[in-house]
């Protein structure tokens, strides 16, 4: 199957006064049509910037320094601004991380939804656009959607706002949705429901999903494949089953150990020692070296390259290959 999205050696840097922040540094991954891929990593690892890079929404002082982003047959780096605008919100939609800040405070929900349709369909009637939006609100579980259409964002709770942005993402039946922590703002009961709904919607319409989260537990149940990010790099990627049940990279192993679960009841939760290094002064070698139990002298000096293993997974580690 031909991937719907292919990211190759993407580097997105921020050129700030204090120095260069390599927010995304040489990452490659792909998403097949209808597939759900998880992008997992700690805060600051570059997940959101990856999403913005795909949509061409990096603003100065940030810049995509190199790499290819291919969507279907289009090279997103080469197409015109107008073409990119046609893709945004239409073929690739994004759900933002912070639901409190995503909706414009002075515009009605109705306005913010209908404009999303009209931006990509000039001929649709106001009534048809309205109906589509109202139905989308109903679909994400907002009761009395007709009334809600007239409301302003401040009249909604955080969870409801997040559902509105999910509804907006679904409006134009995109081929790919980049969902940046779409359920973090929701209560646990709703979380499960929204995850289930989104999964169902994507299966039904064949929409692919890039599910961005720091929570491995959320992603384990729904994704086909997982990419684990650390300090701007993808350090391990493979099928969900392989990543969850046989993690190879010490960082992935640490992440999985730190997920609370039933059979670890009573035990103290695992914690990865040390801290994420500052993005301004990343070490010359592997960024995880200081916290790693497998570290060697070589790790301090050398940047591990991404290598593919027989079971189809990719790893960035100098020591794993030696072991097996």
């Amino acid at each position: 199957m031909k991937p719907i999205l292919e990211v190759e050696n993407l580097k997105t840097y921020f050129f700030t006064k204090e120095g260069v922040v390599k927010a995304v540094d040489d990452i490659s991954f792909h998403i097949n049509p209808g597939e759900i891929v998880g992008l997992v990593g700690e805060s600051g690892s570059g997940k959101t910037i990856t999403g913005f890079s795909i949509l061409g929404l990096i603003d100065s002082p940030g810049k995509i320094v190199s790499g290819n982003i291919k969507f279907k047959d289009l090279d997103l780096q080469k197409i015109s601004a107008k073409q990119m605008q046609d893709i945004r919100g239409n073929r690739i939609a994004m759900i933002f991380q912070d639901p409190m800040m995503t909706l414009n405070p002075v515009l009605r929900i109705e306005t913010q939804m209908i404009e999303t349709i009209k931006a990509h369909n000039k001929t649709i009637s106001q009534q048809d656009a309205y109906n589509t939006c109202r139905d989308a609100l109903g679909l994400v579980g907002i009761s009395s959607p007709d009334e809600r259409m007239k409301a302003y964002p401040h009249q909604f709770s955080g969870g409801m706002r997040q559902r509105v942005s999910i509804a907006i993402a679904l409006l134009n039946k995109p081929d790919l949705i980049i969902a940046d922590e779409p359920t973090t703002a929701l209560d646990v009961t709703i979380q499960g429901q929204v995850i289930f709904e989104m999964q169902k919607l994507c299966k039904e319409s064949g929409t692919a999903l890039l599910w961005v989260t720091h929570d491995l537990a959320v992603v384990a149940g729904i994704t086909d494949r997982i990419s684990v990010m650390y300090a701007g790099r993808i350090i391990e990627q493979g099928t969900t089953d392989k990543i969850i049940n046989q993690p190879l990279h010490p960082y992935t192993q640490g992440l999985i150990k730190s997920v609370p679960s039933k059979n670890k009841k009573g035990e103290k939760l695992h914690q990865i020692d040390g801290m994420v290094p500052s993005m301004f002064s990343l070490p010359k070698g592997c960024a995880f070296e200081e916290r790693c139990y497998l570290r060697s002298e070589q790790c301090k000096q050398e940047q591990p390259l991404e290598t593919q293993y027989a079971d189809g997974r990719f790893l960035r580690c100098l020591n794993i290959g030696k072991q097996t």
Binding site: L57, R88, M94, P105, A119, S165
Partner: peptide
């Protein structure tokens, strides 16, 4: 964020 989100929806620059 809401400006970036508006752009992410594919709205024109003028809108």
């Amino acid at each position: 964020d809401y400006i970036k989100f508006a752009r992410a929806k594919g709205l024109s620059h003028s809108r």
